[in-house]
């Protein structure tokens, strides 16, 4: 369970995030959507304890992310950021092995190796296992990072725009994988998404943000309507339906 408690992040006089209360619980995919600068990534990064809030906090399974030992949190929440440039050259297997670091502190046990193999299997990466990350395509690299998150085996997975720079096919594959994290592995996945329609189709819950605040929260069908879209994105759009899920025709907006 992830509980946001009166969370505020300010840079100087600018409040970039002001989230009094938000609870994410149970297996499923929650999408954070909103325009650029709405505070989605800020919220996610604070929950992943990579950024200090100005005030308030986030609890993960009751552990305060601003004070709990990093090692304790690493077994509960994994975060994958937008830029995944590593300072060192790793093979895919080495990267995935790092996913076990919170448990083994670098000395992998047989169990750890088994989980690494499982993660490589899950993302169909076995044939690339010995390849270096910088020799892979963007989509393959993204999969390798997701495999590391799978190997880390936390109940909570935070993904910051995992579809960035992926082509249509790889984006679809990644979203299917993210769905599996929730459905097969029972994880609470929070994902920042740019494309509202991807969120509408794949997420169980959508949290829409604007100017650092949550303006709508609920199932896709309840959140996505024309007035809310105008409020969130500042754009007049037409919303229609496809197989019971809302579709935003944002590309037709003028």
């Amino acid at each position: 369970m992830i509980e946001v408690r009166s969370l505020v992040k300010r840079y100087g006089d600018t409040t970039v995030l002001d989230c009094p209360d938000l609870t994410l619980d149970g297996a499923g995919v929650t999408a954070l959507v909103g325009a650029n600068g709405a505070g989605k990534s800020t919220l996610l990064t604070i929950a992943g304890r990579l950024l200090e809030p100005t005030s308030g906090t986030v609890l993960v399974d009751g552990h305060d992310v601003t004070t709990a030992p990093s090692r304790e949190l690493a077994a509960r929440v994994a975060i994958l950021r937008q830029e995944n440039n590593l300072a060192v050259r790793l093979t895919v297997r080495e990267l995935v092995e790092f996913g076990r670091f919170p448990y083994s502190q670098g000395r992998l046990t047989d169990d750890d190796h088994r989980l690494v193999d499982r993660a490589l299997d899950t993302l169909e990466l076995h044939e690339f296992a010995a390849r270096r990350l910088d020799e892979l395509s963007g989509g393959q690299r993204q999969r390798a990072f997701i495999a590391a998150v799978v190997a880390q085996d936390t109940d909570h997975v935070l993904l910051d725009e995992p579809l960035n720079n992926l082509d249509l096919r790889h984006a679809a594959q990644s979203m299917a994988m993210i769905r599996r994290l929730a459905d097969e592995f029972g994880k609470t996945v929070v994902v920042v998404l740019h494309d509202i329609n991807v969120a509408a189709h794949h997420a169980d819950r959508i949290v829409a943000m604007r100017s650092g605040r949550v303006v709508a929260d609920g199932e896709p069908s309840t959140v996505i309507d024309e007035p809310t879209m105008r409020e969130v994105f500042g754009l007049d759009v037409e919303v229609t339906e496809h197989h019971g899920r809302p579709v935003v025709l944002h590309f037709l907006a003028s």
């Binding site: 090692r71 975060i79 994958l80 300072a87 670091f101 670098g106």
Partner: peptide, 21 residues
Amino acid sequence: MRYQLDAVALGHDHASSLGVD
């Protein structure tokens, strides 16, 4: 500290996410 240093070599965010202070 050798294993922790390995993780730190990945970069600040990756190492933090893996539970390294």
